[in-house]
Every structure is written in C-alpha cells, then in structure tokens.
Amino acid sequence: MSPQQQFIAFKTLVRKEIRRFTRIWVQTLIPPVITMALYFVIFGSLIGRRIGEMGGLDYMSFVVPGLIMMAVINNSYSNVVSSFYSAKFTKSIEELQVSPTPNYIIMLGYVCGGCLRGLLVGLIVTLISMLFTDLQVHNLFVTASVVFLTAFLFSLAGMINAIFANSFDDISIIPTFVLTPMTYLGGVFYSIDLLPEFWQGVSQLNPILYMVNAFRYGLLGVSDVNIGVAFAGIIGFLLVLLAYCLFLLEHGKKLRN
C-alpha cells in the first residue's frame, strides 16, 4: 500500500469512528456532559463555597481542570474500548484484517477516533465550566499538548483492553475498578499537599496525577508536580502503550485464530 493509500484507509477509519459516536450522541456525548455539570454544581458551587481555597485557588477554579481531564480520560478510553471490542464481537474487524491496511493504521484510526471524542467532550465540558468560573489559560502549549497526549494515551489503553476482552463484562472491569479510582485519587478534587507524606508518595505513582496537574498548570499556573517530570512520564507511558498495542496487533493476539 502506498503512503497515499494508507492515508485514505486512515481517513476512512477515522470518519467511520466519528460517524459512530455522533450517531449515538445521546449515549456518547450527553451523559458525560450531564455528569460533569453536576460535579460543577455540587462540588464546585455548593460544597466548594464551604471548602474555601485549595492550592491557593478558590475551589471551583481548582476543580475545573481536573474535571475536564476526567471527561477526556473516560471518553477517550471508553470510545476505543467499546468500538474496537464491538468490531471484534460482530467480526466486522475482519473487514480490516482481510484488507491490506497495515496494523499501525488500524491502531491510529481507532486511537484518533477516541482522541476526537475525548477532546470533543472535553471542549463541551470546558464551555459548561465557563458558566461557573472565569477560565484563564496560563500556558496554551502545555494545556493543548497535555490534553492531547492524555487522550492519545487513554485511547491506546482502551484499545489494549478491547484486544484482550472476551466479553462485554471485560470492557467495563478496567474503567470501573482501575480507571475510576485512579482518576478520583489523581488530584482531581484535592491537592496532594493535604495528604500525609506516605500517601503523597503513593499518589506520585499514579500517572493520572501528573496529567491532571500538568493540565492544571497549563490553565492556572499551579501544580503539585514538576511539569518536566509530568511530560516525561506521559510521553514515556504513551510510548510503552503504543509499542505494546502494535505488538499485540502484529501478533494477532486474540484477533487471529
């Protein structure tokens, strides 16, 4: 396949993914927006007033970047995990497997679909957050690159989950038992400075902490972690998942009999 043909295959796959999540927009775009709006009202507006300041900021301002990232993480992941597993389940993945489309294009097509849904939901949540607080952008490059890399990373993670999944139960186990606790404990709602030293150390093993804080730095200019370390961690983790995902596709793990 020439590079031009590969690009056509990639565009086809991305278009198909966009069509999928926009066709079922009531399931894919509306629920995260409602959930996040409730977070803003309850945690930010109602409880937040009683909390006062967090990390030197009023609580609503503090919590907004984390909630945007939470929406991006969940939607990037769930888009790819459900789309790719459904393709496996219905065997429509064979349409791609019999074609000359290289595995890396298949991976990038699905991941790009996941990123687009994650970023679209993130954008909608950002717009809603502006009803509750004045949103400033401290560093546009950091903000944009962190949100994109995070969406990419969790799309890849969703794809790996889908490759291993044998049933629809398997695609909800990781989001429920791993992703949600990691997100809640990843500094979305609090600064890790509040934690005892031991738990601060434990929190620093959580990759979501670095993503949330790097994004918070991009918007507000404050962070619990070093931004350079955060970028290095995100990129390193992303490269590992990228290589692993390609390895699984090349070897047909759980895809070819």
């Binding site: 396949m1 031009q4 043909q5 056509i8 295959a9 086809t12 791609l96 000359p100």
Partner: peptide, 9 residues
C-alpha cells in the same frame, strides 16, 4: 464505501 477505503480507494 468503507471497505473500498481500507483498500486505499
């Protein structure tokens, strides 16, 4: 149409 796209058409 999608299948044709996977073949680079």
């Amino acid at each position: 149409v999608n299948q044709a796209g996977y073949y680079g058409l």
